[in-house]
Computed example of a mutant assay.
Amino acid sequence: MQKPLPYASQRQMVMASLDHLGRARDSHIQLSNAEEPTAKHSERLTYDPVGWHNFKFWYSESGEQTGSKQAWLMARGHLVGYQFSGLNDEARNLVPETAWMNSGNYSGMDEGNTASMLYYDNHLDSWLATHPNFRLDYQVTPLYAQDELIPRKVRLAYVGYDDAGKRIQIKVGGGREESGDDDATVVYLDNTSPNATINYADGTATNTVSAAPAAPAASAPAASSSAPVASSESSVAPAAQAPATTNDPTVYVTGGGSSAVYWYGTDSMPANTNKANLVQMPESQAIQQGKRHSMTER
């Protein structure tokens, strides 16, 4: 059931128990900005949610039916994100999610993709940061079809509370928001990926993008002067190729990496910043550690 938690002046985290198939069913938090976790998100996930499988699939960023890059299809997805809950390897808060729905891209992250949880988590985190005296009520519910092991959709429901306990509607944009119960805003996200067909009953999947043809091997010059010229770039990714990082920029973290925020550049940092003590890392690593983009950098 979609319904905000009653207002409280302290952090609340309520998770439904696993169902008879071992599936996570609902995760719900209410907190202020000061109650967000401060510990780094460094623990490696070891729990495999029911229905968990993973596949390294070909994909095409341009929507073609052949692709030259591969990426992992699935993620062990947190229902309520770590930046709010501080929970990592918690069965009641984990479901198999496509990387596309989880982080907005086949590989790396695209926080502008409104089909992803990353888009809403980041905007809600920013809302908390800019409303330090208010509280966020955030409920995330996987939606299954009968006894299927993989959710077909995930429902997000969020509403604010002011310091007097009055509910406040929150709108983050993106064109997917609907009106829910008790002033909440509701968003439904599809647990799909453009390069795959998923069997939601058992978690297996089929790659709908095939490998681009390999460039022809070099050979002795042909008699004809019109012999084809080999491509200067192989169109087949090596089997052990690392995921592409085009959408995972390098960011800067102050305080030797201890700061809770990160920056895309150094020009907007406060004048007293010790720039000799900056740490560089991929944005995905910073987010994994529970950090967020500085609200003062434009």
Rank of each mutant, 00 (worst) to 15 (best):
R292S: 15
A242C: 09
G256A: 11
T250G: 05
N207Y: 06
T208A: 10
K275F: 10
N272E: 15
K291M: 09
S210V: 15
S210N: 15
P216C: 01
A271V: 06
Y252E: 00
V209Q: 03
T273R: 03
Q289P: 10
S219T: 14
P216H: 03
L278E: 11
V236E: 04
A215P: 07
A205C: 15
S284Q: 15
T254E: 01
G257K: 02
V251N: 00
A242G: 10
A218R: 01
P213H: 09
A223I: 14
S219H: 13
A239S: 13
S235N: 14
A237V: 10
P249W: 01
M295R: 06
P270F: 02
A260N: 05
Y262R: 02
T245L: 14
S235E: 14
E233N: 09
P282Q: 06
T250S: 11
G265T: 07
I287C: 04
S225T: 09
K275E: 12
V253A: 01
Y264C: 12
A240Q: 05
M295Y: 11
A214L: 06
A271Q: 05
A230N: 13
A211K: 07
M295N: 09
S231R: 05
Y262D: 01
Y264F: 12
R292N: 14
A215M: 14
S225D: 12
N272S: 15
A220F: 13
P282W: 00
V236G: 03
A271R: 00
T246C: 08
T254L: 03
V251T: 01
V251M: 01
G255S: 13
T250Y: 00
A223W: 03
T250M: 10
Q289F: 10
V251H: 00
A215R: 11
N207Q: 14
G265K: 06
V229K: 11
E297Q: 08
P228Q: 12
V251Y: 00
G257R: 01
S259C: 05
G257N: 04
S294F: 04
N207A: 15
Y252T: 00
D248Y: 02
P282R: 05
T273W: 05
T246E: 13
N277W: 04
P249Q: 01
V209P: 02
A271G: 06
Q288G: 13
A215E: 09
Y264P: 04
A260W: 02
P213W: 06
A212P: 08
S259V: 04
D267G: 14
N207E: 15
A237N: 06
P282H: 03
D267T: 14
A240E: 07
T206S: 09
V261Y: 02
T250Q: 09
A215G: 14
S284K: 13
P221K: 08
S294Y: 03
Y264R: 08
S225M: 13
S219V: 15
K291L: 08
M295F: 10
G257Y: 01
W263G: 04
A276E: 15
